[in-house]
Amino acid sequence: MTLPFPFAAIVGQEDMKKALLMAAVEPMLGGVLIFGDRGTGKSTAVRALAELLPKIETRQGCRYNCLPGEPQEACRHCRGEGKHKPPTIKIRTPMVDLPLGATEDRVCGSLDIEKALVAGEKAFEPGLLAAANRGFLYIDEINLLEDHLVDLLLDAAASGVNVVEREGLSVRHSARFVLVGSGNPEEGDLRPQLLDRFGLAVDVRTINDLSMRIEVIRRRDAYETDPAAFAAEWGKREAAIRNRVVAARKMLRQVEIPEAVLSRMSQLCMRLGIDGMRGELTLMRAGRAAAALDGRSAITWADVEAIAPMVLCHRLRRDPLDDAGSTPRIERALASLESGYAHA
């Protein structure tokens, strides 16, 4: 199997890389939506992330990625029915691709036809949601995903559980995954219900700096010539990012949010007319993740200013009288809030 392109070797696209790392530190963020031009490294970055992250523990042969000490009811394999429990192993963090043409049975799971015909046994065949448990579910061209699959993902993402009731089967299993979607906005918009489920949304654009474009070409050529040597060359920098993520996960819940920062976060969302409370909750979680990645024990207002566009842009109501776009609206609101505090 060819080694993925190293995450540390990706040139530019800092917002995209930061969003993916924050989602890796704080799964409760709700996932990352990456929209932008073709050939800007969206899929490359997502697949590189899975290789970068620390391995997870499960039992050998488990298809639900169960925690070794907490086997799921649906997983007869990990519960060791009729035999000894399989040994504990470490596997790469799951990164499951959901094809646009996938069937509902392939996504959710279905009756194991082979066992039903050969052994006369009614058994469950896990789907992609089971494979993505404790990892990432990646959908390229997510804006082209069929509506019935969008509904399935919304249910699983909201509850963290996949429920299958069909063909005489009644199965429930964990489906806790970080949803990552990418696409080209020219090919259509995302359904509002699914758009709102993403904690972070970033726009990526083609790099216009000449030296950076040349560096992209050089690195890609070196990788395609000898993937193993290229990965080894970037190994130390990959390990440094991995260590940052591990350390950030450990200290995440200890990161404090000063009352003044929390108050200004709410004022920002009110000023922008953000519906519901998801905006503030995501700002808080993303701020914690950003501070933890920097090794800091408290969120600052600078953290909020840096992450506000990726948290709030896709939550803004469309204003037909404002041609500036979402990011300038957020920047104006931040400046207005800052000015108000300066004159207070």
Rank of each mutant, 00 (worst) to 15 (best):
V178K: 10
H84K: 15
E141F: 00
F177S: 01
S110H: 15
G120H: 10
E51M: 07
A132W: 06
H77I: 04
L67E: 13
A175I: 04
I142R: 04
A132L: 08
A158T: 09
S110P: 00
Y64S: 08
R59L: 11
L152H: 01
A119T: 08
G109M: 07
I142K: 04
V118A: 07
N162L: 00
L169A: 06
L137C: 01
E121S: 12
V171M: 11
T88K: 15
E165C: 00
L129S: 03
V171N: 11
K85P: 07
G101Q: 13
V107N: 07
R76F: 09
T58V: 09
G80M: 06
L137W: 05
H84N: 14
V163W: 00
G82F: 04
P87K: 14
E104C: 05
R59M: 12
C108M: 15
E104A: 15
E57C: 06
I139E: 00
H173L: 11
L100G: 15
V96D: 05
P54L: 05
P126H: 00
R63Q: 15
V118I: 14
L179I: 05
T88E: 15
L145F: 04
Q72G: 11
I56N: 12
R79W: 07
T93M: 13
A131G: 05
G82P: 01
A116M: 13
K83N: 04
V163D: 02
A123Q: 14
A158L: 03
L152M: 10
L129C: 02
G135A: 05
S159Q: 11
V46K: 08
G135I: 06
E167K: 15
M95L: 15
G61R: 08
P99W: 06
I113L: 15
D147A: 15
R166Q: 14
V178N: 13
R76Q: 08
A48L: 03
C78D: 09
P94C: 07
E125N: 12
A50N: 01
N143P: 00
A119Q: 13
